[in-house]
Design a protein around this nucleic acid. Sequence first.
DNA 1: GTGAAAGCGCTAACAA
DNA 2: TTGTTAGCGCTTTCAC
Lengths: 333, 333
Amino acid sequence: MVTLKDVAREAGVTATTASRALRGMDLVTPKTTQKVVAAAEKLGYRMNISAQSLRTGRSGTVTFLTAGIDGAYFSSLAMQFAAELNKQGMHMLIESSRYLVDSQGRERDMSYLFSDGIIGINAKHASKALASHPSVLLEDYTIDSPYDQVNAPSQSGTRAAIRHLYDKGCRHIGLVGHDIPPESDPGASQQVRMLAAKHECLALGLDFDDERSLISVPWSRQGGVEAGHRWADDDLGFDGLYCPSDGLALGVLRGLADRGVDVPKDVAVIGFDGITDGQYSVPTLSTIAVDFTSMAQAAVSLLTHRIEHPDEERYPQTVTVGYKLIERESTAR
Amino acid sequence: MVTLKDVAREAGVTATTASRALRGMDLVTPKTTQKVVAAAEKLGYRMNISAQSLRTGRSGTVTFLTAGIDGAYFSSLAMQFAAELNKQGMHMLIESSRYLVDSQGRERDMSYLFSDGIIGINAKHASKALASHPSVLLEDYTIDSPYDQVNAPSQSGTRAAIRHLYDKGCRHIGLVGHDIPPESDPGASQQVRMLAAKHECLALGLDFDDERSLISVPWSRQGGVEAGHRWADDDLGFDGLYCPSDGLALGVLRGLADRGVDVPKDVAVIGFDGITDGQYSVPTLSTIAVDFTSMAQAAVSLLTHRIEHPDEERYPQTVTVGYKLIERESTAR
DNA sequence: GTGAAAGCGCTAACAA
DNA sequence: TTGTTAGCGCTTTCAC
């Protein structure tokens, strides 16, 4: 293994100078830098990050902590983060929060979390890990959270979605989701969206009933399928369906297809997130497209600030990014 | 920051003993171990991985190197790997090969690649990184590759797909893809699949022409849409369409839907990969489902072997995993 | 502008 | 079974 010392010897300088040269510090003579770089190149030197990290206390790595990156939503989000971090010369470690708790639900030792910070989504149970690092939480709507938050525009986006259905003539709007939470402190995006939908329906003067206006299914594609079936089988009578995620909406589309329902003629469907799959479904899916790129930029920027100013006392910030209503076939009428 | 020394002091032993106790080495008295563990717990000790890694030369981290994890295919693959590595007590760093080459196409410094090994997919241009680590390549069909390979059953799976179309009465089978490569050394899964499809068509005594049997489009969902359009607009006359990836197939379904084509009645469509999206499309997608779990297990096992036996001279191995033909609506007739 | 020396936190070899 | 010592490769004083 070729070390900095080897490079230094080859270049006829000391390790100190070689180190400085390789990092492009400007106290070094251009000529010296040249020599060092040439030597490094010649010997095929690659820096030992562990050593650097031990010395400086920084690893240049950020952990993306999630329950899972499967599915279009998480994977496109994860990609945005990797890209953004790479741009900053950092790297992304991906860690599944599933493996952070043992069978008894206790947090496992996370000694490996040598990363400089954590970007967490659906990872609240990993509280030890979060607390021991600069952390940014995504899609966490806890009030007075101790962490910086970056959120999708769940409220405004949902309202826009409901209004869109309304504008398309829907007067019996149904919500697809697990439940409609009580007003107090909703913690997850799902809950925020359900609540906002209810409020907007009410604001528009529509009939709304916590029980009858909800098709209660699990938050998943399969749940969506079930909701589609129920719409048809139970003759629910909604002329518009709001789904708080595109995954759910895509499931609904499939479930309705199973019953030969015509979307959007019989019922209009709108989703939330803006995953690319919605461009290719049959029918294509109207949705609230969240600005993932901005989410990534905001989160990385908040995080790097915390990493670089560990002692600064700054109140936790919340960034809410923008959205765009995309009208496609599922509400075109 | 609490270090091993602090723990040792608290427990009344030396750092060495503390280190051994914490790692569960059995030369340490159970009683001593107890004390050390208690002290660590009390002080909230977490190991400094950089230091450990510097000392031992191992980071416990594997890089998943890919052009991108967006899309259902890469993300489910990536998840399988993360899960498998986590099971082994290792961690996954995700790195986009896009950021490994600069604008001139030269490989950038990858000093950060402090991981113990690399699992690469679509990452051949990162040859320096691969060469400097134990590496396993996924979906690389290069003959005489210097690296271990883990591949999907592209040949046998493709043949099964074509035979399935044949069994469903298709006699004019079209291939969707970029091109049909020459016989020699195909490097990518796409090429292997196209070639295998051609061979199987020929073996079944079907008409086949490199030009006329191909709908040449880019390897993407959008490419699939285009292919669907062409089928209808150019009156291509295929009664069965083989798509070498589910993404492509889902695009085709959407493209055919644009033209009001009835799948499978007018034309049957089959994909390859087995991503979950195919369960929810309209119509649902028949496909060759690749055993991703086995891919992950095989790759991790090959890699850990190389990591643990760096000096062993072992010829590069190739593992080809199994598949399952899943028949859904898109070929049901 | 460059070098010498110290030390980040850990573990392996050796000694007791 | 436990402790002592040395050093992994790097960067950061502090001197020159």
